[in-house]
Amino acid sequence: MIYGLTGNPHKEELWPLLDRVIRVLDTRELPYRLAPELANGRAERNMAVQEGCVAPSVNDVGRQANVVFSFGGDGTLLRTAHAVSPSDTPLVGVNIGRLGFLADVEHNQVSRAVDALERGDYRISSRMVLEVDAAGRNLGRNWALNECVINRSGAAGLLRIAVTVNEEPLNTYWADGLIFSTPTGSTAYSLSAGGPILMPETGVVIITPIAAHTLSVRPVVLPATATIHAEVRNPERPYVFAVDGVSTEFKEPAISFTVRRAAHSVNLVKLDGSHVFNTLRRKLMWGARSSASSDNEPPEDASQNH
């Protein structure tokens, strides 16, 4: 198996971790390829000279490797997914960020991850993505693993966004914006705006309003077969359309944004014990108790006293 190594070169935590990974791969005589920004960063730090080796660098890590390690946070893994696509090369997200729902392999688990990959002791989680179009305008990215978002661009006042699903009117939203999320993105921006948590391999699309004017307006879950059209109808009010964090500003209304399931998917490597329930409990601290609250817990046999 050939390993591709990429990540966020602006995180100082990356470099000692990258060296540890390279030592593991070299010791086990496993071939690997470095993304150019990592190879250049090592050269600038004289790491390759000190170790007496120069790691091979390739521009297209996704096509030159059988699996790609992405060192950083969820944002880094999103960038890696877009860089690797349309290759179906599976990705391993190694978390050196904060929360890490996508990058769910912790930095001290990399050796175990390599062992598991060599044994074939892993599974591939295929994640649906959303194809987006803005009437032919350049959006920077044309598909989203997490979400695409219509949002205000610093101007006061709400946006009026008309949405149809399969050519059937759904609602005209008055809100700060709308989030169109995949199940993978349900634990990202959509969650912070009150959207539901979905199992990542579910075939659905979530529409989550951002600070809607009417409290009765709630998130809507649609089947993955839905074709969604959204149109901002405020004249001369700037807004942005963001695709996995890459934003494009628009000033003209009546642009029809189309969101639908894309033909391709993104493959993530999942190791034994990395079930989504474990990630939710750990990252969201479900079931965690403070020392103060635990003092007030009823005894375990309290139910027997009724």
Rank of each mutant, 00 (worst) to 15 (best):
P235D: 09
R137L: 10
E167H: 13
P238F: 10
R237Y: 02
N234F: 03
V259D: 02
S181G: 12
P223H: 07
N138D: 15
A135L: 03
N234Y: 05
F180Q: 12
E249I: 01
S247K: 09
I161H: 02
P223F: 04
V163C: 05
L215W: 05
T214F: 13
E231S: 14
L139E: 03
N234D: 00
A135R: 02
H213T: 03
P183R: 11
F250N: 00
A211H: 07
P169Q: 10
T225E: 15
F241H: 03
H213M: 02
T208I: 10
L191Y: 05
N171W: 14
E252Q: 07
P183W: 11
A230H: 10
V163E: 07
S181Y: 09
I228Y: 01
A212Q: 09
P209F: 04
N166D: 15
G203L: 14
A230K: 05
V165A: 11
Y239F: 15
I207G: 05
L215Y: 04
H229N: 11
V243P: 09
I210D: 08
Y173G: 03
V217P: 01
L198T: 13
S256V: 15
E168K: 15
T187D: 12
P196V: 13
H213N: 02
T172L: 07
R237A: 13
I150L: 14
N142E: 10
P200G: 06
S181E: 02
V217Y: 06
G140V: 02
R218P: 01
N166M: 03
T208P: 11
W174G: 10
A230T: 06
V204C: 15
G157T: 07
K251N: 13
E236K: 08
V205E: 13
I197R: 04
I150Y: 03
V243E: 15
V232T: 05
V232C: 08
L170V: 10
A162F: 11
S153P: 01
A211G: 06
E168R: 15
A242V: 05
I161C: 08
S190C: 11
T214W: 01
P223V: 07
P169N: 09
N166I: 00
A144P: 08
T184I: 11
Y189W: 14
P238V: 10
P238K: 09
I255T: 12
L191S: 06
S256K: 10
L158S: 08
A242Q: 08
A230F: 04
D244N: 12
P196A: 15
N171Y: 15
N146Q: 07
E167I: 00
G136K: 03
G245K: 05
V205Y: 06
R152H: 06
P219F: 04
P253C: 04
V163D: 11
N142P: 00
H213D: 10
V165N: 06
S192C: 07
D176T: 05
P235M: 02
T258Y: 00
L191I: 12
R141L: 10
F250C: 02
A156I: 13
Y173Q: 07
A144E: 13
F180I: 07
G177E: 14
A230I: 04
N166R: 05
V240Q: 14
V259E: 00
N142V: 00
V243S: 07
A224T: 01
P200W: 04
S153Y: 11
A226D: 02
S256P: 00
I206Y: 05
G154A: 09
F180L: 09
